[in-house]
Amino acid sequence: MSITQQYLLDTYRARQHDEPAPPAPGTHDWQVVREWRDERQFRAVLAGRPARRRKRIRHALGRWLPSRRRATG
C-alpha cells in the first residue's frame, strides 16, 4: 500500500467516525528536518564539538553556483 492509499484510507475512516482528518503526507517534513538539525547541533555542543551551521551546504553550493563578484568583475 502506498502512502497516498494509506492517507485516503485514514481520511475515509476519520470521516466515518466524525474525527478530524489526518495531515496530508509531507505536510510537516521541513519541520522534522529543522528539529533533527537542532538536535544534532545540541548533541554536538554537549559532546564539546562546535555546532556547525550550514557551512558545508554553502560551500557545496558555492562550487556549483556562480559568484556575483565573479560575474560583475
Rank of each mutant, 00 (worst) to 15 (best):
M1P: 05
M1A: 08
M1Q: 06
M1F: 09
M1V: 09
S2C: 02
I3F: 12
Q5G: 07
Y7Q: 01
L8I: 01
L9N: 07
D10C: 05
D10W: 01
T11A: 09
T11F: 03
T11C: 11
Y12A: 14
Y12L: 15
Y12I: 10
R13D: 10
A14Y: 07
R15D: 00
Q16V: 07
H17L: 15
H17C: 14
E19D: 08
E19H: 09
E19V: 03
E19M: 14
P20W: 04
P20L: 03
P20V: 02
P20S: 04
A21N: 14
A21T: 14
P22E: 11
P23Y: 07
P23V: 10
A24E: 15
P25I: 04
P25S: 05
G26R: 04
G26M: 06
T27Q: 08
T27D: 03
T27I: 04
H28C: 00
H28S: 05
H28L: 08
H28E: 11
D29A: 14
D29K: 12
Q31W: 05
Q31S: 01
Q31F: 03
Q31N: 01
V33D: 09
R34N: 05
R34G: 02
R34W: 08
E35N: 07
E35K: 08
E35L: 11
W36M: 05
W36I: 02
W36K: 09
W36R: 11
R37M: 09
R37G: 03
R37Y: 08
R37L: 12
R37F: 07
D38C: 02
D38A: 10
E39I: 01
E39K: 10
R40T: 10
F42P: 00
F42N: 06
R43N: 14
A44N: 13
V45C: 02
L46K: 05
L46I: 02
L46P: 01
L46D: 09
L46E: 12
A47M: 04
R49D: 15
P50F: 05
R52V: 11
R52M: 12
R54S: 10
R54A: 11
K55G: 14
K55Y: 09
K55R: 12
K55C: 10
R56L: 14
I57H: 10
R58P: 01
H59D: 13
A60C: 09
L61P: 01
G62H: 04
R63W: 15
R63K: 15
R63N: 15
W64K: 06
W64P: 00
W64Y: 07
L65A: 09
L65Q: 10
L65G: 02
P66W: 07
P66N: 05
R68E: 12
R68D: 08
R69P: 00
R69L: 13
R70V: 02
R70G: 05
R70M: 01
A71I: 14
A71G: 03
T72H: 13
T72Y: 12
G73I: 06
G73A: 13
